Simulated assay, not measured.
Amino acid sequence: MADPEVTFPVELISEREVAARIETLAEALAPRVDDDTVAVCLLIGGLWFAADLMRALARRGRHPLFDALWLSSYADARKTSGRIEVRAPLQWPVAGRQVLLLDDVLDTGLSLEAAVRMLRDAGASEVLTAVFARKPWPTERAVNPDFVAWEAPARYLVGYGMDDAGRMRGLPGVGAMD
Rank of each mutant, 00 (worst) to 15 (best):
G173L: 10
A114E: 10
P4D: 05
L25G: 04
T24M: 13
P138W: 09
V18Y: 00
D178H: 09
E11L: 13
V38C: 03
G109S: 08
P138A: 08
V6F: 14
D35A: 13
A114K: 06
A19K: 14
G159P: 02
V131C: 10
A95C: 09
D52F: 05
A124E: 04
V94P: 01
A39Q: 02
A122R: 13
V6A: 14
P145Q: 07
D3E: 08
L100M: 07
A149I: 00
K79H: 15
V38I: 12
P138N: 11
P31H: 07
R167C: 04
P172A: 12
K79P: 00
L110S: 11
G170I: 01
A2I: 13
V33T: 02
A77E: 15
V174D: 07
G123F: 02
P89A: 10
G45W: 10
V94E: 09
G123N: 06
F49G: 04
V105E: 07
Y156N: 05
A30I: 02
Y160F: 15
A75H: 08
A20F: 10
I13K: 08
L65E: 14
S111C: 03
M162E: 03
P31C: 09
V38K: 10
E15W: 02
A2G: 10
R120E: 12
V40P: 02
D121C: 04
P64A: 05
A19V: 06
T80N: 08
E17D: 15
S14N: 05
V40T: 00
A51H: 05
D178P: 14
T37H: 02
V10K: 15
V158A: 07
Y74T: 05
A133Q: 01
R87V: 08
D107R: 01
V94Q: 09
A58V: 06
R167H: 10
V127P: 04
V10T: 15
A19E: 10
L71A: 11
L90H: 11
L128P: 03
